[in-house]
Amino acid sequence: MRDLLRRDLKLHKVAFVLPAVVALLGGLAAFWTGEPPIVFLVLSLGVVLLQPHALHLREEHHGTLRELHVLPVTPRQIVGLRVVEGLLGALGVALLHGMLALVLQGPGVFQGLGQLVSPGWLWMLLMVLLVPLPVTLRWGGRGWMGLILGAFALGGGLTMLGQFEGALPFRTALFRALLWTMDYTTAHPWQHTLALLALMAACLPLSEAALRRRSL
């Protein structure tokens, strides 16, 4: 794992600069606009959590994915590499934002530590890094095209559904179930967090299986 991380740091220096720039700009923007720093931190984290995908797609674009796969490492280690890159990036950005906010806006800028342990972070980690990871590892750039098109189709579909309220027999039950889940998880933070962690853990073997299926 250490060798893989070093390899990426050596080979993708430019790509690693981007999240730092985003974090820096976010921190400065928080100062200039007067908005709570947490708003820009969320935006920066979104970008940083996309970074492991970007690194994998960069390898694919340059034709070096084969070289990565030929190395004497297991698929699990490659999955671990991408997750660690996301976590380290997120940590780095959070620290950078925190330091900038403290320097520029002074202590007390974060209104309590509660903000920093919000399950929202886990949702971001899950939805931006872990859920799309099997897609990136299995289909690369094509997978992301599929994800983006799928998101548009889903958005369009949901908009259309709104126009046909009551027309579809499953709709009421489905939406009730969704609303119940949202209510329940909001009211039961521990169960919510545990469920999120379980979902996150499920993404790892899925990513490994996806990577094993990739032919280069």
């Binding site: 390899r7 050596k10 080979l11 034709g63 070096t64 190395l71 004497p72």
Partner: peptide, 23 residues
């Protein structure tokens, strides 16, 4: 490989440093 590919911006010494620790 038949058509070796390397990260375009990297120097050969860097590429070697990235490769060698695995062997």
């Amino acid at each position: 490989p038949d058509t070796p590919a390397f990260q375009p911006g990297a120097r050969l010494a860097t590429l070697k440093e990235a490769h060698a620790p695995f062997y």
